[in-house]
Design a protein around this nucleic acid. Structure first.
Length: 114
DNA sequence: CATTTGACTTTGA
DNA sequence: TTCAAAGCCAAAT
């Protein structure tokens, strides 16, 4: 089986270090479905708060963040990212070249794969 | 079972 | 990095 898509998303996001951000596409790629970036967002919606997933560290490729109604406020996500040490550009987008995660800190994804 | 929807990506300019 | 258009995948209706 392709493993629970959502399960993989949770595992990836949970391993994202503070002060760093990851794109939906990268998450999907780690799972094995580089085209299922949209479903990553769906998984986030279905993501239980018990996991304490740092959804604010998950952004799109352009460095733009999710709609405000997700975090219950306009500019809410930006505040959390700034608190983590993330640098924002004047336009309001994240400095991807500086914070875009290249690889996961732990390769424990071996369990969720396959 | 067919259609719509969406926390997106990629390519090109 | 930003704007525009087309494409993809899974869940909801």
């Amino acid at each position: 089986m392709v493993v629970d898509f959502f399960r993989g998303v949770y595992a990836i996001v949970a391993q994202v270090p503070p002060g760093k951000v990851i794109t939906y596409g990268q998450i999907a790629s780690f799972i094995g479905q580089p085209r299922a970036a949209r479903q990553v967002g769906w998984a986030m919606w279905d993501a239980p708060p018990e996991l304490n997933l740092p959804c604010h560290r998950v952004v799109n490729q352009a460095g733009a963040m999710s709609p405000p109604h997700i975090f219950g406020g306009e500019g809410r996500q930006r505040a959390m990212l700034e608190a983590e040490g993330v640098v924002f550009k004047a336009n309001g987008c994240i400095d991807m070249a500086r914070h875009k995660l290249k690889g996961l800190p732990d390769t424990k994804l071996h369990s969720i794969e396959q």
